[in-house]
Each structure stands twice: as C-alpha cells, then as structure tokens.
C-alpha cells in the first residue's frame, strides 16, 4: 500500500517537473502592412486573390541568402500580415509590374528598389510600381435589352520601360457572382475571353474596347464585372481594373 503511495507521489513529482520548464519562443506578433501603388495614378494596384501580387520577406540579419517568406496581397493591392517575427527584413513585392529588382541577362543586379526594414511592432510600407498595363473603365456597364451586359474599357501601358512594350496577349471580361473576380475565379458561361495576335496586341493599346458578356441572358442575381489584360512578361499575370456591379432595373 505504502509502495503504491510512494510510487504515485514520485510519478506526480515527475509529471509536475516536466511541466515547469517553458522554453517556447513567443509566437510572432509583429505586423507588416502597406500597399502596392501605381506610381502614376497613385491608386493601389488591383490584382487577384491568392495568386496575384505577393510580398517577399528576406530575413537578412541571420543569413545573406535566406529562404524567402511570401504572403499574398489582397485584391485591392493592400497587404497585411500580423504574425511576423520582429527582425531585419529586405522586403519587395512581385506581380504584373516592372520588377523592383532588375537583373541583366547574366543575372547581375542592375536596380534594386526593395526596402529594408527593422521590424518592431509594425512597419507600414509603400511600393510605387509601374504596372505592365493599366485598365480603366469608360463609363459604366450597360444592361442590354437581352440581359447581356456591355462594358467599355481602355487598356494603356503603365510603363515606358522598353523591355515591357510587348503586345497584349489577352483581354478578358470576367463575370462572377462575387467581387473576387479574376482569372482564377470567374463564370465561364458568361465571361468573354479574347486572345490577340502580336500585331493586333500592339494595335489594341489605347483603343476604347467594347466587351459584351457571352452565353445569353445573365441570371438575375448579383453579378460583378472586371477586365483583366496581360502581356507575355514576368509570370504572365494579369493587370485588372476595379470590380463593378450593376443594379437590375
């Protein structure tokens, strides 16, 4: 009986002893926030959710060539991550715009517009970039008598950099029942996708384009429209305008 008591006592002692030591590193709690801006219009640069503009953090206080940490920006080009370890970071953004870090054909860095921060509590960053293409609405979407919708847009160059004066390969009118509308999320029944040949893709720059939904009448529900366009550069990502909705009469 006594033996059992002693055994139990020791077991308890050991159990408590094991609990006493706290050697966990505190959870990350610092914040990196900010946005990517079109340097001409001053507006945040539209992108797509989950696969568009992403933020790269390189923790350089420990290693000169660290494994990068990435997170994606929100659709409107703003970004916010509130679970980052406080440290020294080299921060840049990657997306459908002239890269912040430009290398020559053998990999030598020519320009580097990334920002180095010492993160403590919170850092707010502002990246001014030159989008490959700038897509702007002309007027508002028009609901046609057959319940299709026609929009008008103009696609212009967002940069004077000669390397990126490439033909437009695609201009797509995306239709979705949420505002998170883009190449990775659209309704294929109504969206209108157009690919351009090299010559047509050069000529289309600056034209006011009229795009109409396909597939007949749109359903009488919330529908959002957005136009994306791209050139064959970088990771072939799309530039977008802001999503808009229309009100049924």
């Amino acid at each position: 009986m006594k033996k059992i008591f002693y055994l139990g006592f020791f077991a308890l002692l050991i159990a408590f002893a094991a609990c006493s030591k706290v050697d966990n590193y505190a959870a990350p709690g610092d914040t990196v926030t900010g946005a990517t801006y079109d340097e001409v219009t001053g507006q945040t640069l539209q992108t797509e959710v989950g696969s568009g503009t992403r933020v790269e953090l390189l923790e350089i206080s420990y290693d000169s060539a660290p494994v990068p940490f990435y997170f994606y920006s929100m659709q409107d080009g703003t970004f916010n991550d509130d679970k980052v370890f406080g440290a020294t970071y080299k921060v840049s953004v990657q997306g459908p715009f002239v890269p912040l870090i430009v290398t020559d054909s053998t990999g030598v860095v020519i320009t580097d517009s990334s920002q180095t921060i010492v993160l403590k509590n919170k850092a707010t960053l502002k990246f001014n970039v030159q989008p490959f293409l700038r897509i702007q609405w002309v007027g508002t979407p028009v609901l046609n008598p057959d319940t299709t919708v026609t929009v008008r847009v103009v696609v212009t160059r967002g940069t004077n950099n000669a390397t990126y004066q490439l033909p437009v390969t695609d201009i797509n009118l995306y239709v979705s029942n949420t505002q998170y509308d883009g190449n990775n999320n659209y309704d294929p029944r109504y969206s209108s996708l157009t690919s351009y040949s090299d010559s047509a893709g050069m000529a289309v720059i600056g034209d006011t384009l009229t795009l109409t939904t396909t597939g007949g009448a749109l359903p009488a529900q919330d529908v959002y429209f957005r136009v994306g366009a791209r050139i064959n550069a970088g990771l072939d990502e799309y530039n977008y305008n802001t999503p808009v909705s229309i009100t049924y009469p």
Partner: peptide, 12 residues
Amino acid sequence: NTITLYDAADNQ
C-alpha cells in the same frame, strides 16, 4: 523558354 532564374554565382 522565357522564364529565367540565376543563382548568386550567375549560373542560369
């Protein structure tokens, strides 16, 4: 191919 990547020693 149009995608490129170089390492620090300029190997493609």
